[in-house]
Each structure stands twice: as structure tokens, then as C-alpha cells.
Amino acid sequence: MTAVKTGRIALSALAIVLAIVWIFPVYWMANSAFISTAVLQQFTPHFFPGEYFTFANFTGAISDGSFFGALGMSVTITLIVVAVCLVFAFLGAVAISRFKFRGRKSFVLALLLIQMLPAEGLFIAQYKMVSSVGLLNTVLGVSVIYIAAVIPFTVWMLRGFVAGVPAELEEAAMVDGLSRFQAFMRITFPLLAPGLVASGVYAFLQAWNEFTVAVVLLPAEAAQTLPLWLRGFVQASATRETDWGQVMAASTIVAIPVIVFFLIVQGRMTSGLVGGAVKG
């Protein structure tokens, strides 16, 4: 038995090492955020804030007040994109996994093609479109572009989940007198919750991190999202060098809401990923 025991310990040790490797950059960001820029300039890296601990980077980062506007924009856009994308993608996924209909194959293929198209060439057209209907610097203008970019992957992912739930369960419920819709909602839908969470996480990350479209569709400073706010720090002003302490503090602030969102859905998500991707 000891062979298996030591094997297990070795694996656990490896797991801990990998955990440290993956958490280290995140730790380094937070660590640097609490060290003053002057100290960060020195040549020897500091692995703990220790006596250099300061909160000034955070107050400095938030001081110019544009942070809360950017946070508001990012949260509003991300929630709208996640909500709309999940509903529309879910309906689409049900269609292609529960029904046979003409055009089904081309729809699935089109979804894959969209993901292969590089986005860098599109922003001129996207700008023309959104500005022609006067929706520049608005949540709606950007959300429409993000939703279209995220739906293809979400439909693919949800398709696997819906297909994973046996239709017989629904039929059985219908035999007991439930309508088709009631059966679906009572039997199939609860089983899909993990899948919806997993797809929602993907959509959240896409909208929260997006930069190149936002630069052009949200030009006004008052309408910028968090990635634009963060980019502003890195480019500081022409004469002051990049204030690294504030960049790290700003990066930590941008990362916190995502981490909190993840921890909330973490439980559901891992089981979610269990169901969906496997049926893919």
C-alpha cells in the first residue's frame, strides 16, 4: 500500500507546485500594488511589501474619479451581454440539438466560421454602423457588437449540454400530463443550469476584457470601460514615466470583480463544465 501512498503524496506535491506557478503572477500583481513606485524602481525585486507597504497606489488609481464611471460601464455592458447571449444561445442550442430541420448544418458551420474571422479588420465597419445610428459612447452600441461575437461559442457549448439530457425524461413527464413546455422547464432546464453557468462565465470574460472594439466605439473619456481605463494608466502622461505602482493597483482593481464572480459560480461551474463540454 505504501507505494500507492507515496505516489499520492508526490502527486499532491506536484499539484501544489503547479498551483503556486499559476497563482504567482496574480500574487505578483497584488504584491506590487502595495509597494510604492519609487521602491518598485529599484533593481532588487521585493517578494513581500514588508516595510514598504503603502495604500497610496490604490487611492492614486481611483483618485481621478474616472474609475467608478468605467466600472459602471463595464458591469452594465457585461451583464447585458451575458444575459442576452445566454438566452439567445440557449434557444439556438435547443433548436439544433433537439430538432432536425433544413439549414441546421449550415447554421452550425456558420457559427464555427464566425469564430475563425480575425476581429482586427472589422472595427472601421463596426464604427460606421454604430455611429450611423447615433449609438457611439453608449452601452447598447457596444453590447450589440459583443453579443454577436460571443454567441457562436456559447451556442456550441450549450448544444452539448442540451443534447446530454435524454428526451425520454421529457416524454415521460408529458405522459404524466405535463405540456411539452412544462416538461422541458421542469425536467431538462434544471439539469442545464451548470451548462448555462459555464457559458455565462465565457461570455462574461469576453465582454469584461474586450479592448479593440471599445477603443473605437467608446471614444469619450466618460464612456470608457475598465480595459480602457487601465490602458490610460499604462500610457500615463507624456512626461511622467509609467507609474508602475498605480498600474498594478489598477490591474488588481480590474481583476477583483472577475475573481469574486468566479468564486460565486465556481461550484456550479466545475459541474457545469462536467456536463456540457463532454457532450460537445
Partner: peptide, 9 residues
């Protein structure tokens, strides 16, 4: 970094 894209649009 972004000035050119903004001016062009």
C-alpha cells in the same frame, strides 16, 4: 497608441 484609430474613425 489609440490616437490614430480614433482620428481615422
Amino acid at each position: 497608441g489609440d490616437a490614430l484609430a480614433k482620428l481615422q474613425t
